[in-house]
Amino acid sequence: MRANLFITCLVDTFFPQVGESMVGVLERLGVDVRFPVEQTCCGQPAFNSGYRADARSVAERFVSVFGEALSQGEGEESYVVCPSGSCTAMVKVFYKELFHNEPRILEKLRRITDRTYEFSEFLVEVVGKTDVGARYDGVVTYHDSCHLLRELGVKDAPRELISSVKGLEFREMPLHDSCCGFGGTFSIKFPKVSVSMLDEKLDSITGTGADTVVSSDMGCLMNIGGAISRRGIPVKVMHLAELLANTGKG
């Protein structure tokens, strides 16, 4: 089984350790991991801001890069795996909007979207594992990324993965499915509102008494983590892949 990493520009640029963790977990499970080096961004920032022509040209490039990647490796089940609910949703859901007048691209796209998975969904649905051999001594709560939950309908997979980690105690937070206030450019267009939403999310997190908050999107975690670090709140911020990469063996 082959996984072509769609690493996302956020992870590539700011959080490369998340990508390394992902590679670690997948390889531990015997997955053949590849990284198509031509990849950059999926085009979501422009699409969400209303710049469709710009988004289209970036998205078209994505389609050709990953179409090419999937066509390699004959005889092997090949997938695209991404550590972000939001970027996965861009490809699986919003590309259809973006290219609704372009049947030629839609046809190429369909072959990609059928094989594209967000990381947690990939582990549970495709690899078929909830226990990936991780160990973590701590109390963990989980924030649902809006796009993973509502665009892709993935709610249970990350929870099953977290609950199977040895040594870990999972505590569901109230308002776990409420937006953290990130919303891409929303967070700088309306910073007061964004931070006010974030305040409530932080209360929700700290109220559980958890020492670690986990999510499946670096957009959310950059927002949540940005305030946690500014305010000195004693809670660790972790992508699910980082949590699962922990084996407790050094």
Partner: peptide, 26 residues
């Protein structure tokens, strides 16, 4: 306009070794 983020939140620094460079090692 990035101050609209950093007024109340820290912004992550661009990594010294982005994933694509680490990948070459992996």
């Amino acid at each position: 306009p990035f101050s609209r983020w950093t007024d109340e939140r820290d912004f992550p620094a661009v990594s010294e070794t982005p994933f694509r460079e680490r990948w070459r090692k992996i």
